[in-house]
Computed example of a mutant assay.
Amino acid sequence: MTTRPLIVGTVIGIVLGDITTGIVVGASLELVFMGVMAIGGTVPPDAVAGTAVGTAYAIILGQGVETAFALAIPASMLCQMMFVPFTALRSLWSPAIDKWVEKGDYKTLERIMPLVSLTTFIPRGIVCACAIALGSTAVEGFIAVLPTVLLDGMGVAAGMLGAVGFALLLKMMWTKKLAVYFFVGFILSSYLGLPLMAVAILGILYVIILFVEQNHNGKSASAAADEEEELFND
């Protein structure tokens, strides 16, 4: 949970000497980014970068949560758009890593892994530092300069990646035994209009019912076996 806004905001507050503002801003941004998660192949807004920038700017200016919101959202969206090129930087290490694997040099691999991770984290840190130095107007202006075709294409691609991600996940989990649960959930959501939380709660309740029944049947079978054993012993 170290990547949650509440933790990130608190850490930024400790570093900048204002823990109270860090906790308050982190808790407020927790509500904003609570539903943000990577599902399938989708790339969500970067909650860590957004919280770090928003909290730091709110403390530096001595203002409240509104200032944090003004910078957190555009900064998170900017890092979201740059996620793929940042991640692609790690592929530059692949040739060297392949050679070390072939040689069986696992000690070098262990030592190099933190450096490979820094290849992604350092650019994100630079983006956050620039966002704090330039302010929300510059970040929003950068996003506004991007062509509409590019932004629309990224939006369509994000929607497609979500569907592809679910399809890949379903392909790994799909069995004839589990297929019925998929269609039950689909009917509850599409035809009965139940929200996702209601479907999830029904699933949890059904699991509890199955667990109780199996536990009860197991105890009954065990008791019957004990009685039969005692009968033959007599």
Rank of each mutant, 00 (worst) to 15 (best):
L6Q: 10
V8W: 12
I14Y: 11
V15T: 00
L16C: 06
G17N: 09
I19G: 03
T20K: 14
V24E: 13
A27T: 07
E30F: 07
V32Q: 08
F33T: 00
M34A: 10
G35R: 09
V36Q: 09
A38P: 01
G40Y: 15
T42S: 10
P45R: 13
A47V: 02
A52Q: 09
A52P: 01
V53P: 06
A56T: 11
A58F: 06
A58R: 03
I60A: 11
G62F: 09
G64V: 00
G64P: 02
A68G: 04
P74R: 10
L78C: 02
M82L: 11
F83H: 11
S94M: 15
K99F: 01
K99P: 00
V101Y: 11
G104F: 00
D105S: 13
K107E: 08
T108Y: 10
L109S: 03
I112G: 06
V116D: 14
T120H: 07
I126D: 05
L134Q: 12
L134E: 08
E140H: 05
L151Q: 08
G153F: 10
G153H: 05
V156P: 03
A158T: 11
L161H: 12
G162P: 03
V164G: 04
W174T: 05
W174R: 15
K176I: 12
S189Q: 08
Y191E: 03
G203K: 10
Y206A: 09
V207A: 15
L210R: 14
L210D: 12
L210H: 10
V212A: 15
Q214L: 14
Q214C: 06
Q214E: 14
G218W: 03
S222A: 13
E229V: 04
